[in-house]
């Protein structure tokens, strides 16, 4: 871990704080009935997004699931765009046409959040194929949950990426629950992603997904492998969500002792303690926290002030000509 320079580590900490505070704000706005529809919070899983988000280069592609607020922010998408989209406002990343589960910001490399489990893995393979075909140095990174490892698209995507030696990175956020059901109850192997790696001629990689340094280093190694033309990687990050599957889920099915033990490994306080132990002055960290909170507050107010989208926009962009005509 000593190999990570201090400025990078402070940036990782800032990213963790941004993702945590923004996600908490999303939850608050939901309780105020300002976030409509559903939302799937990534509280507790921020280290995976922060580690990859910082390791990835500008042109790299992120593909994430409906639990994708953290990955979207980690690539630099504006908080107001994220919160505004959750609230169905004009300032949203998708101007209200996609919602929480489909956050996308192409200019930040966020190639979409996909709400059909596993659907985005083959799409990420296609983006990696395109990068390989065009001879660009881009890599495509697909984030997904442990439940995804039991759906066919996971296996079709891994196999094709391996056969074509594509610059694709598959990152499993194993938070131990597919939705409400423990992943171990429905999976034949202990590590739902890593234990399948051998099927595609890939090494089994398991990372502490709550340790942002470990994730950052694993991400760097996989990205280097992708850019060298050595093919895909499959990385299983062990983590835990602090809240339920979605807003409808109080997560009462989880044993209290299990929740407690994972809260002790919360990626934020543990990383904060590590930085302090390495001699970072606490004031540096409190300044980061204060600045981020102010930024989240500003984004919240901007999103609240943004109007709902114009009704006419419901009829735009079905087709590339901007319209929705299906007949003459």
């Amino acid at each position: 871990m000593e190999s990570i320079p201090l400025p990078i580590r402070l940036t990782l900490y800032k990213l963790l704080v941004e993702l945590r505070y923004c996600e908490k704000r999303a939850h608050d706005l939901f309780l105020q009935n300002l976030v409509k529809g559903t939302s799937h919070l990534a509280l507790g899983q921020e280290a995976i997004a922060a580690g990859f988000g910082l390791a990835m280069e500008k042109g790299d592609y992120t593909f994430c699931t409906y639990r994708g607020h953290h990955h979207t922010l980690a690539r630099g998408a504006p908080m107001c765009g994220v919160l505004g989209e959750l609230m169905g406002r004009q300032c949203g990343l998708l101007a209200g046409k996609g919602g929480s589960m489909h956050l996308t910001s192409v200019k930040h490399g966020v190639m979409g959040s996909y709400a059909i489990v596993g659907g985005h893995l083959p799409i990420a393979v296609g983006a990696a194929w395109s990068a390989q075909y065009r001879g660009s140095r881009q890599a495509a990174v697909a984030f997904f949950g442990d439940g995804t490892t039991n759906i066919g698209a996971f296996h079709e995507a891994l196999n094709l990426a391996a056969v074509w030696k594509l610059p694709a990175i598959f990152v499993c956020e194993n938070n131990l629950y597919m939705e409400y059901t423990p992943i171990r109850n429905v999976t034949a192997v202990e590590h739902p992603a890593a234990d399948r790696a051998a099927s595609y001629g890939l090494p089994a990689i398991v990372v502490d997904g709550n340790d942002v340094d470990a994730v950052y280093l694993a991400a760097g190694a996989a990205l280097a492998r992708a850019r060298a033309g050595d093919g895909p990687s499959l990385i299983e990050c062990k983590t835990y969500r602090h809240s339920g599957h979605s807003r409808a889920d109080p997560a009462k099915y989880r044993p209290a002792a299990e929740v407690e033990s994972w809260l002790e490994r919360d990626p934020l306080p543990t990383y904060r303690a590590r930085l302090l132990a390495h001699g970072v002055p606490e004031s540096n960290l409190t300044n980061i926290e204060r600045d981020v909170l102010a930024e989240v507050d500003r984004a919240t107010e901007a999103a609240k002030a943004s109007p709902p989208p114009a009704i006419e926009s419901a009829f735009t962009d079905v087709w590339a000509d901007g319209g929705a005509q299906w007949r003459n």
Partner: peptide, 15 residues
């Protein structure tokens, strides 16, 4: 799944 998914990912990125 991989055929249509890969086609989509490629179409989104310039092919």
């Amino acid at each position: 799944l991989a055929i249509l998914g890969a086609a989509m990912g490629a179409a989104m990125t310039g092919l």
